[in-house]
Each structure stands twice: as structure tokens, then as C-alpha cells.
Design a protein around this nucleic acid. Sequence first.
RNA 1: GCUGUGAUGGUGUAGCGGUUAGCACGGUAGGUUGUGGUCCUGCCAGCCCGGGUUCAAGUCCCGGUCACGGCCCCA
Length: 439
Amino acid sequence: MVQRPRGTRDFLPDVMNRRLAFENLLENRALSHGFKRVQTPIFETLDLFTAKSGPGVVKQLYAFQDKSDRALTLRPELTAPVMRMVSEEMRSSPKPLRLSYFGQCFRYEESKKGRYREFFQYGAELIGASGPLAEAEVVALAIDMLDACGLLEYEVRIGHVGVLRDILTGLGLSEQGEPEAPVASAMRLLDKGDWDGLTELFAANNVDSSATGNLRRLSELDGGIETLESARSILSTMGISHDSLDELAALLTALESLAPTPPSLKVNLCVARGLDYYTGMVFEVNVAELGGEGQVLGGGSYKLLHLFGLEDLDPSCGFGLGFDRVLLALEAQAERAGRSEVVPGETPAPRTLMLPFKVDSTAVLGIVKSLRDEGHHVELDLRGKNIGKSLDWASKNGFTNVVIVGPQDIESGQCSVKNLVSGDQNVVNLDSGSISAVL
RNA sequence: GCUGUGAUGGUGUAGCGGUUAGCACGGUAGGUUGUGGUCCUGCCAGCCCGGGUUCAAGUCCCGGUCACGGCCCCA
């Protein structure tokens, strides 16, 4: 038996219906915030991603040579391709750009629930504007999307890598180094809360270990915008600038007006996002019930366009939304709540079966076309069974109405329109207008 | 990269060395030549793959594949 490759999925009609509803919902929110959809190729040259993330990423890529020995790869994410597209084709477009995208990405890693080798990302990038207001616009779109799809109990964590970076370089840690800069190592350890690891790192780099106390107090701040006051006093005792905190405060204030209030929003100055190209605000969203793979969205302000000779547009701000994971969370929450509709608006439109019975089907084809043109969802019966079986079949297959046209109907110029949900039946003239009126 | 659990028709399952591999749902054809969701009958369809142990393997052993978990990672 031929099987699907590991980590890939087929989407059957019912699932696809839900995914389309979800995508449309996200698309509508993006448009309402002025973000316009773009699309880039499924594969790109390999160096696009090694330039962004270093040579180490290759082992996680579906990389290959084409027939002319070009080094290519299936895309593992969409931010770099969009940046490439902007540098290649949108240099002279008026800025700022608000772009959104949706598509599959590929990573060669172990597949699990919520983690596939082919997965789908919806994202948005705001290019050519920076600062707290631009960041607030991006975060507001992210929260608006999650709110619109009905997700519950998610936690938004917002931080600013500038704070930690200022502290760590102030302590004398270097931003250069192989295989990983000490500053980056320290941020990763702080993100994980690995204090032993951090103490070791400080010792290895001759950093005064007393700094860990202040870092710990900083990491233990728990709450929203009000925790910034405590953060300020900690930074003051360390002699670190308040600039990053001021930016964060402005962003959070703007966000309160721009976005729906999320179930939980926490300032977390240790969010590092595992990425060294983030330069300012960073944020991520987690859903606890997904367990280990619970991050459903992540983004922030980053510098990437300098890689394409567009340093004047840095930094940009954006986020990626894990389409599959949000859907999993919505499905879990819908099941827990006993709700049949998982994605708002996924319930399909009513469907009608045109059932010619012992008559030549060609007599009703024109009516089928007219009903479709009027916007009804109509299927022509192709089985040719008796009425009992046909109604049974129609009912099992989710039709709401059946138009029955038999020999007597043709003679009298009428037909029966039966509603399968209520059982009501109407005899109307055999024309699309009359039928349409009772559907 | 490390590690744990599992795999029987399309779906959900029973079988725990010898059975024509059972059941339910499903699909399909009828019972019913103009009225469904009930009922009855026939049919369709399965032991993940490859080795091994054994007189005999769905069942035991080894390897692979796939799925689901826990670490690592997550651009």
C-alpha cells in the first residue's frame, strides 16, 4: 500500500471545509487591518534560509538539488521569502507595507500531534515602519485574529529583547562567538529558566554572579503593564537604561485601545523567541491544553532586510500564526464545551438535491443551472434509485431540500419540494423562481 | 538526536500459538415501480511491511514503516 510521506496529511471534505472557513476568517481580519495577501514560491534557493538562520538549519530542511544542480529547498517559514520578495519587487512601493500570507511550510523533524513536516502558517509583516505604534498594530492584528476565531484561555506574553541585551552586554558578555554568542546563550537559558546553566555561563565568562539575583527578580515579575514599574526600579539598581521599557509601555498602552482584551496578557522580559534577529519587542501566544506544542503564534520586531540591501527599512515587525495548532486548540475546546461548530461560520450553506424520478433528467437541467446561478447549492441526482432510497441517501448526506420531479409533475408542470429537516413538502410550479421561493 | 507506547476491513473494536479472524458502524444491491431517517437480507472490505522461532504465528522474537507521548530543538 502506498502511503503518504511521514508528517503529511490529507484533508477530506469536512476537514477542508473547516480549514477554508478558518482561513477566510483570518483573511477578513487581516484585510480589516489593511494587511494585503501575498504569495511566494513553495521552494526557494537554499541560501535564502542559510543567510537568515545560519548553515546549521540545513539539516532541518527539505533541501535538494534541481537538474541543473541549483541548491534549493522547500520553505521552512515565510518571513524570509516575504522579505526576499519585498527586496526583489517592492523596493519602490510606498511604505509602510502591510502584508499577509498563508501557505504550507516544511521542516524535516519528528512529527507529532501539532507538529507536522508539512504545516501551515498564516502570518503578517509590517515593513517600513517601526516603533511602539507599529508594533501595537501588529500585535493587535494577532490578538484580533485569535479573538475572532473564538479561541479561549490563551496567554499572550510580550517582552522586549532590548532589556536583556542591555543588561547582558552591560555585564560584559559578548555578542560575538562560536558556535553561539554568550549573550544569545544567556538569553536562551533565561527563556527556559535554567538558572544553574546561567550561573555556569557567567562563571565561564568571568561575570559577577551577583547579577543573577536581579535577573531572577526581573523574571519573576508576573502581570501586565503594571509590572513595568517594578522592572524600572530593578533596571535602575543595575544602572541600565529604561528606553526599552518605555517603548514597551507605549506599545501596551496603545494595545489596550486597539485590540480586544485577551484572556491573559503578561509582560515577560525573558521571552527570547530563540532567534537572534529579533531586536525589540517580542511576543508569543500559548494555549496550555496543547501541552508541549502549545505555542500557537509568535513574532516581534526584527532586522532582516539589511540582508537584502534594504537596511533603511529595518526593523520590521511581524508574526506567524500556527494554523494547524490553533485549529487543534479550537477543536479541543469545542469538544470540551460540547459545541459542534469549531470555527465560527464553518456551517455549510443549505444544499438541495434535484431528483428526477422516472423522467428524462434533461428536463430539469435548465432549472438546476438557474438555481445555481441564483446562489443555491444544488446537486443533480446521478443514482437513479427509487424515491425512498433517494430520500434516505439525501438525508444521510446532509441535504436540506429535495426537489422531486416525476412523470405526473412533468405533465402538470409542477414539482414537490421537500424539506428533509422539517419534513414539510410544497407543490410548486416547475420553474426555478417558484422552487427558489420555497428553498 | 535520545527515549516510551501502540498498529486487525474505510471507522471503532474482539481474538493472546491451532477459529471459515467475530461484532458494530460504513459502502453497495435488494425487500419496496411517487416519499426518508425504522426494520430485514445478500454482497464489499482487514491481521502495517520484511525476516525469524514453531508441526502451526494476527498472537512470540528481531528489524523497518507509520502514529501517539516525554526530553532536545523549534529559524
